[in-house]
Design a protein around this nucleic acid. Structure first.
Length: 905
RNA sequence: GCCGGGGUGGCGGAAUGGUAGACGCGGCGGUCUCAAAAACCGCUGGGUGAAAGCUCGUGCGGGUUCGAGUCCCGCCCCCGGCACCA
């Protein structure tokens, strides 16, 4: 046996043996508890894996391997998210077909995953572009359709001019396409949607039932954006020619042609007495009617403003720092609370797509309304009493009553508004003096009693846009018959196969390349009528919304899955991947799972019980300062240069930064390279040890060396024990003595801690525990004079170390296991050791002694010593005596097994 | 602005309210060697001291407690997300 960790001697050997014996094929034993460990469905990029990807796959692998050894039935599959834009764009660039290309890339991914020893059950693998798989994606689409959750409508949608397709809201970040980076445009074309909004509340509620990072849950709640308020109708008053204002008197010219109303939504019904105007979004449908009723100069202004607004991009329009714009319509609305007439304005700070596209404006208590009112000279009325801090800031030196009086009079002079929800109403008729909470309740009830509105819950979430005008995706199984009827393709005709084509580039005119393929488009429907196939394909996120179910029964030709298998494995016990999917994949997959739950196809309403997000691997990357004429984009801190170029640049022009590994930055370290240089197990140990699982790590060769050194020491230790090793140590009487029991105590404490740490994804402390253990026992094993007498506890220690190391460094562990004369592999049920609590107990405990909370010494006490004895021993301690003599001991705190604290003074 | 996560040695990071800095990297000193590398042993938060020790110390300011990195209040800074959502 090698005395050192020599990966080139055995890592490939063990990988071959594992493969030969189909070691990682899922063993289903209904008598055992199950464990489903899953990594996010990866798109297999042509660049292959970097060590950054391994930071996702290795930890999941460690947990799954431990679960197998603990006796669980474990499902640990891997497949590929092959459909979608990344694959298609890459294929276009390479002038090849995405199908064979993706096969090649996926094979390379698999090769690299095997290279670092990940225990995937490849017999269950599939790609989302396999017809055997996407047949069932289409089948689930049909379930959604039948349940009224898939529909087609004309809509203004996000158009990506680079990728030439529409995108879901979730794929647009700050007005740019997440993938291509292009500024999205608005385009009005018929599109397929999934009605995820119908599940908004359940998607919020069930977050409480899953064990996910708080941040991800918060992001989902925030994205769904629930808010409670009141929606009510405002009556329009067209007597526009008369002067506006509360003190208007005299005759009004009534030109009321017909009664008209518009709805507003507010979360602050308590501020209704502070409404001084209303705002409609420029696209609001009521604007046409208003235009037809008001004076010509208003009509012209309205038209001009609408045109101006339509020209602006969404990003420009919603920039928060932009000055408010708007135009008066000439019409008025009646505030139902006090009957006052308020002007109706058009302004683009009100979004047509949220709520009712119209608001009651309360400039006294909403900063946006306030900014608008001050710009256009509209009234501002204070209706909530601010707190003292606010009053002091704006009216320094005044007492509260005076400040309040001043506030009511000159609210317009304040720089910010009081928006807080704790306060008492003022200038609000009969509601004056009530708390905000009470007023919200009572005014809500009053509106309902009046019959003009109701309390309502509003969500920001919008329906999920699923159509893509692209070739490489799952075809939507719908036929449009000649008379315009939509029909689902019958189940026996599924899958609708993606046709083989030579040219699949997107046309850019808003239609899919599939629409050019006559054989595909022209069909006969089930009644023999002529029809045209839907030519949009589904976005990639549809395909990845149910793959975790298919893994339960991956090759079933007759069903998407056999419910008994899915119910055995689901939900996924531990789901591991990057935080960047917080509100896309994870929200969509939860939605589909709930629909399938409602359909009775699975028992679990949530797909992923526990979620963990790994940190990224960063590499030191060279940038240089910008030269004359060069400017940096916002957020950019230098201009990326190649490593070659960096060598030739003067040091004062270079900036080295930690940046995420990516092909474009040229800073990638591949697992192939890492394995070649240091070994697969060293790579695994390094990635696990270098930082907490969810923290970013800074790649370093020195760190890799540390991992190698640790493995060297493990080999040396086992090698030292080998001459005295007794494989039946468990059946022999253990020697008495301090060193023997210290070894056993360390062994069993290590078992306990490592098991716990792996379970809670604290791999760095698990490895640290193994290092401490090794540091403790290694000197005893290398001491030839001692090791004979300690043969039995050292045998136990060495064997335990190998077992505990096995999920982390599986090649080394199997190699050492074999060296110990064991048969087979460590990857099998019931080889994980169990800690014996009796052996973990120490007879002598070190206790800290404090005086007034400051450490003044330590004492060794017998474990069974009682309080009085401990205190006496502490008082007797020489160092402690100095601090407590000539002082009055007022109190003595004894924490058993921990410390004694004398309070003196 | 709002939501979430953080701020601990030269660096990565440990610490159920109970001996802060485990473990590792780096550094320093030593053993081995003709020498170097590797390996092994020792030291390694600041100040002070010959040493024992004392003292300061977990972003800043308060508080609770016998005792606070940990709990509470008020700030500052960094990272991630959302952002004119009424």
């Amino acid at each position: 046996m090698a005395e050192r960790y020599e990966p080139s001697l055995f890592e490939s050997k063990w990988q071959a043996r594992w493969k030969e014996s189909d070691l990682f094929v899922t063993q289903v034993d209904p008598a055992r508890p199950k464990f489903y460990g899953l990594d996010f469905f990866p798109y297999p990029s042509g660049a292959g894996l970097s060590v950054g990807h391994c930071r996702n796959y290795v930890p999941t692998d460690v947990l799954c391997r431990m679960k197998v050894m603990q006796g669980y039935s474990v499902l640990h599959p891997m497949g590929f998210d092959a459909f979608g834009l990344p694959a298609e764009n890459e294929a276009i660039k390479r002038k090849t077909h995405p199908g064979p290309m993706i096969d090649q890339y996926a094979a390379n991914y698999r090769r690299q995953m095997d290279l670092v020893g990940i225990s995937y059950d490849w017999s269950r693998s599939f790609k989302s572009s396999d017809p055997d798989y996407y047949k069932w994606t289409q089948w689930i689409f049909e379930i959604l359709y039948r349940r009224g959750l898939a529909y087609r409508k004309d809509a203004v949608v996000n158009w990506d001019p680079v990728d030439k397709t529409v995108l879901a809201d979730e794929e647009v970040i700050a007005g740019r396409a997440e993938r291509s980076g292009a500024l999205v445009e608005k385009k009005n074309i018929p599109q397929w949607f999934f009605k995820i909004t119908a599940y908004a509340q359940r998607l919020i509620d069930d977050l409480d039932t899953v064990d996910w990072p708080e941040g991800i849950k918060a992001m989902q709640r925030n994205w769904i954006g629930r808010s409670e308020g009141v929606q009510f109708s405002m009556k329009i008053d067209f007597s526009g020619g008369a002067p506006a204002g509360p003190d208007e008197t005299g005759f009004e010219v009534v030109r009321k042609e017909r009664e008209a109303y518009f709805e507003v939504f507010t979360t602050r019904i308590d501020t209704i007495f502070g409404m001084t105007f209303c705002v409609l979004a420029p696209e609001h449908p009521m604007v046409d009617l208003i235009s037809s009723q008001v004076a010509p100069e208003h009509v012209a202004a309205i038209k001009a403003y609408q045109e101006e607004a339509s020209r602006l991009s969404d990003t420009d329009r919603t920039a928060t720092n932009r000055e408010k714009t708007g135009v008066f319509t000439g019409a008025y609305a009646i505030n139902p609370a006090n009957g006052k007439r308020v002007p109706i304005w058009l302004a683009d700070y009100v979004l047509a797509t949220y709520g009712t596209g119209a608001i009651m404006a309360v400039p006294g208590h909403d900063q946006r309304d306030f900014d608008f009112a001050t710009k256009f000279g509209l009234d501002v009325i204070a209706v909530i009493e601010p707190d003292d801090a606010y009053l002091q800031k704006h009216f320094p030196g005044l007492g509260r009553p005076e400040a309040l009086g001043e506030y009511a009079k000159s609210i317009k002079s304040c720089s910010t508004v009081f928006e807080a929800k704790d306060g008492v109403l003022m200038q609000s008729g009969e509601y004056t003096g009530k708390s905000v909470a009470d007023a919200q309740l009572e005014l809500g009830q009053w509106i309902e009693a009046l019959g003009i509105g109701e309390r309502k819950i509003q969500y920001k979430l919008r329906d999920w846009l699923i159509s893509r005008q692209r070739y490489w995706g799952c075809p939507i199984p719908v036929i449009h018959s000649a008379d315009g009827e939509e029909q689902l393709v019958t189940e026996d005709c599924l899958p609708v196969l993606l046709p083989e084509v030579d040219n699949y580039e997107p046309s850019g005119d808003g239609s899919s390349p599939l629409s050019l393929i006559d054989d595909f488009v022209n069909v006969t429907d089930r009644d023999g009528r002529l029809g045209k196939r839907e030519t949009d394909t589904m976005g990639g996120f549809a395909c990845s919304s149910w793959y975790f179910l298919r893994f339960c029964d991956p090759h079933n030709p007759d069903q998407a899955w056999n419910p008994s298998f899915a119910n055995y494995w689901m939900p996924v016990d531990c789901y591991v991947g990057g935080a960047e999917h917080a509100v896309m994949h994870l929200l969509y997959a939860r939605f589909w799972t709930k629909v399938l739950f409602d359909e009775g196809l699975i028992d679990s309403p949530e797909p992923f019980k526990r979620l963990e997000n790994q940190g990224q691997v960063l590499a030191l990357t060279p940038y240089r300062l910008p030269r004359e004429g060069e400017t940096l984009a916002t957020g950019e801190e230098g201009i990326l240069v190649s490593f070659e170029e960096a060598k030739s640049l003067p040091e004062d022009q270079l900036i080295w930064r930690w940046a995420r590994m990516s092909k474009s930055k040229g800073n990638v370290v591949t697992p192939d390279e890492a394995k070649e240089l240091y070994g697969a197990d060293a790579l695994r140990v390094y990635l696990l040890f270098v930082a907490p699982f969810n923290a970013d790590v800074q790649w370093s060769n020195e760190g890799m060396q540390g991992a190698v050194r640790f493995l060297h020491r493990v080999f040396k230790f086992v090698n030292d024990v080998l001459p005295v090793y007794q494989s039946d140590w468990a059946n022999q009487p253990m020697p008495e003595g301090d060193e023997a029991s210290a070894i056993r105590r360390a062994t069993h404490r290590t078992i306990e801690k490592v098991t716990q740490d792996i379970d809670r994804f604290s791999f760095n402390t698990a490895i640290s525990t193994l290092m401490i253990f090794l540091n403790d026992v290694a000197p005893l094993a290398s001491d030839e004079a001692k090791r004979g007498a300690l043969a039995l506890p050292l045998s136990e220690a060495a064997e335990t170390l190998v077992r505990l190391l096995s999920p982390i460094a599986p090649h080394s562990a199997d190699e050492l296991w074999e060296a110990l004369g064991k048969e087979g592999f460590l990857y099998r049920a019931d080889v994980w050791p169990t800690a014996n609590p009796d052996l973990m107990i120490e007879n002598t405990i070190t206790m800290a002694i404090q005086v007034n909370g400051k450490l003044r010494g330590t004492i060794e006490v017998p474990r069974e010593a009682i309080r009085e004895e401990v205190e006496a021993m502490a008082r007797d301690n020489e160092r402690v005596k100095v601090w407590i003599e000539s002082q009055t001991v007022r109190k003595v705190i004894v924490v058993p097994g921990k410390l004694v604290n004398f309070v003196v003074g």
